[in-house]
Simulated assay, not measured.
Amino acid sequence: MTRTRGLVIAAATIPMLLGACAQPGTTPVAGAADPVTESASQDTTAVIRVEYRGGFVPPDFLLGRLPMVSVYADGRVITDGPVPLIAPGPALPNLQVQQVGPAVVEELTREALEAGVKTGYDFGSPGVADVPSTRVTVVTAEGTQVAEAVALSVAQADDPALSAEQKAARKKLAKFVDRLTALPTAEGMAKPAAYVPEEVAALASPWTDPGDGLAGKPVAWPGPALPGEALNASTGTHCVTATGAQKDAVWAAAEKANQQTPWESAGKQWRVLFRPLLPDESGCDSLRSAG
């Protein structure tokens, strides 16, 4: 049995880039067993993205939460895939990558705008507490459009706090979100491959024993010294990033770890949430605006 990590959709699309940066007839990505690492020749412009914002979750989860779908100008589709329902869960998320042609990216851009992705539109506030909002961002040659709807997938269809117009708009936006989140398994899509980033962030906070005996033995931290720079001083969440050989060492160690593994660095033990950086992200600063 598997579950899918938090859903967030941000769509960003610059159609005029596609002709120059995405080539028709791109060869589909290989099977899921074959990891795919970024190439310097690939376009890292995010053109479509879906993400959750806010919600009643731990601060480090907010900072490390991944978009569920990101589509790039070169046709890459990166999704936060299902992970095993085990406790504690694996340390690394299951990021997957597939390839689509420029016509598909253009079609998704058009569909996003038709679905009502427009900056400033009020989708209402349903009577649901502590639930994240779904953000859809579309970047076109004319500018960026962002739609954000609270409790988009869980609000009741007859919620009295919503007007008839808001209910209709939310239904249309939700349909587009479903279209994007179903893209990885859509007919004609290549089998997902594992996405391996060029840079990985480690969100570190002091480790405390959960008392369930599942954390395992402490592991020597193979990356830059923890805890790194403060991302959320009030909760003690810090961040370091690793690239090159250090990233490879961190990634290899994380593949054998779980979410409760204690990591030893500078004589202390740390809990680490691993956040692979996406092609359009760089450094810990790229995570500061998460929420």
Rank of each mutant, 00 (worst) to 15 (best):
Y52M: 14
S289V: 13
D212V: 06
V117F: 07
E199I: 02
D178M: 01
Q145S: 07
R110S: 15
S265H: 01
E165R: 09
V100W: 00
I48S: 12
Q99H: 04
S70K: 03
E106H: 09
R179S: 11
M68Q: 07
L173W: 07
V97K: 04
K268Q: 15
V100S: 02
Y72L: 13
G267S: 06
P224G: 00
L17N: 11
E198F: 00
D285Q: 15
P82Q: 13
S133I: 03
E38Y: 10
P35R: 11
D74F: 06
S153G: 10
G31K: 03
G55H: 10
Y52K: 13
T208E: 14
K217Y: 01
V150F: 01
S39K: 15
A87S: 13
R3S: 14
P88M: 02
A290E: 01
L63F: 14
V57R: 12
P88R: 04
D285G: 15
A115Q: 05
T109R: 15
T2Q: 11
K256T: 15
G55L: 02
A249M: 07
A194Y: 03
V29M: 13
V200Y: 04
L63D: 08
P24M: 09
E51W: 10
L277E: 05
F176N: 00
G6V: 02
P218N: 03
L95F: 05
E281K: 12
P218C: 02
L277H: 05
G75T: 05
P28W: 10
N94I: 06
E107H: 04
A201H: 04
E187L: 06
D60H: 14
P218F: 04
A225V: 15
E107T: 10
D209H: 04
P15V: 05
G143Y: 07
F176K: 00
S41F: 04
E111C: 06
R288I: 13
V154E: 14
G55D: 06
L85G: 05
S282Y: 02
P67N: 11
N94C: 05
Y121Q: 15
S153K: 06
P222T: 01
T261V: 11
W263D: 04
E38K: 09
V8Q: 08
P93D: 08
W263H: 05
Q98E: 02
P24S: 11
S39P: 09
L95C: 06
T137W: 03
A164W: 00
A202C: 06
T243F: 09
P184K: 01
E107D: 13
E142G: 08
G31P: 02
R49F: 12
V138Y: 03
G127N: 13
G223Q: 05
G101T: 02
L113H: 09
R271Y: 00
Q259P: 00
V128Y: 05
A242G: 03
F61I: 05
V240G: 11
R288E: 14
G127S: 14
R76C: 03
P93N: 04
A46V: 14
R53C: 00
V50P: 00
D285C: 12
V83Q: 13
T140Y: 10
L183R: 07
G55T: 08
D122Y: 01
T13I: 10
E199L: 08
P227D: 07
W251G: 05
W263L: 04
A91F: 01
A186L: 07
Y121A: 15
P132V: 02
E142A: 14
Q98W: 02
E199S: 09
R179Q: 13
W251L: 11
F56N: 15
S286H: 09
